[in-house]
Design a binder for these strands. Structure first.
Lengths: 191, 191
DNA sequence: CTGAATATGTCGTTTATCCAACACATTTAT
DNA sequence: ATAAATGTGTTGGATAAACGACATATTCAG
């Protein structure tokens, strides 16, 4: 439905740009990377860059979103149940993602990165909630729930990094899960 | 002079095709690689392949030529003198190249490969001979000399592989060099 | 052998990419 | 403070690459 398959040149060019950007991110900080650097590495014209991305920040967003999604998709999307196991693997995906980020240097863009992670999480939680009760009442409640879950689990990952890296992510999030799930059940019943 | 710089799309596409071909060569034998395989890996249209290459054999030739040239160029081209040192490094380049080939699987195409190596060698020797005596008399003699040198040094590499891999390439070719150089001097004087 | 499936090459039309020139910020050196 | 150099973002006209349809091998199972 509404699937107009995109030109392979578009896919290829986007891949070239994103791969080049990640390659450069290993060597330079984000603030030192220019559009010309990227397009040279990717062997494409600078104008072509702007055909695909608003600017370099737009590229950053899309690359991060995609990398995060790859971390999440493969681990979670099939197990559509929003249960303990799902929360654990989502939490692990986030901490993994942040670990891979700390190698690349994006200092000064922590806020942007945080927003991106949160937005992706919100989307995922929302989809999973929809899948779980297929009726379309409680729409608004699901949206708010997704927002709160995304902030909550993201915040947990921040706190984990700050304080508790000695504990493995699994254990850390596990202790909070009963509360999350009870909260979820409560929401489901009363709306 | 007569340098019409080629469209970057052409360079990029050729690189994509060649890289994909080498990638596939690590996994499959040459005879099992189809044009579709290559173009899929390279993310280009099959028709585009034929815009750049006659067919898959043409591609094989060009890839091998290029790999061989990379081996040779960096090692030799600057030292334009056709002396002992040059012969040794050319010989080493050939044996290196053949070693890298034996990993990739091109069984059944030894003849093609041999021809490609020889043609490249002939070209290189010819250029070096021209550089050495800038007068343009003795044209024919230089061409014949290049032919004989290319066959000779290629043949030496074949024999080395067959019999004497215990000796390092340097030593193997070194023993023949006096005769080669004397022959060269003789040719130079009498033509 | 026979047909089905897969691979090779080619061609006219459509489209993504290139180019080079432009106005405008931002940075760097004098 | 100013000039030179470098980076950003946009445009219209030129071209490589995509599409998909075609004819023709080659491979392979029944």
């Amino acid at each position: 439905m509404s699937e107009t398959k995109t030109d392979p040149r578009v896919l290829r060019t986007r891949k070239l740009i994103m791969d080049s950007f990640m390659e450069l991110s290993d060597k330079k900080e984000f603030k030192d990377i220019t559009v010309k650097d990227i397009t040279t590495e990717a062997m494409i014209n600078r104008a072509t860059f702007y055909y695909h991305f608003e600017d370099i920040y737009d590229l950053l967003e899309k690359v991060l979103s995609e990398v995060l999604l790859i971390n999440l998709d493969s681990e979670v999307y099939q197990k559509s149940e929003l249960n303990e196991e799902a929360f654990i693997s989502i939490f692990k995906a986030i901490t993994n993602f942040q670990k891979s980020l700390s190698n690349r240097c994006h200092r000064g863009y922590e806020d942007t990165i945080a927003r991106i992670i949160r937005e992706q999480l919100e989307l995922i939680f929302y989809k999973m909630l929809v899948k779980q009760h297929s009726t379309d009442d409680g729409e608004k409640a699901r949206m708010v729930t997704a927002v709160m879950l995304s902030w909550g689990i993201y915040g947990a990952s921040v706190e984990w990094r700050r304080n508790s890296q000695t504990i493995v992510p699994e254990e850390y999030i596990k202790s909070a899960i009963p509360y999350i799930l009870n909260g979820l059940n409560y929401t489901n019943k009363t709306v």
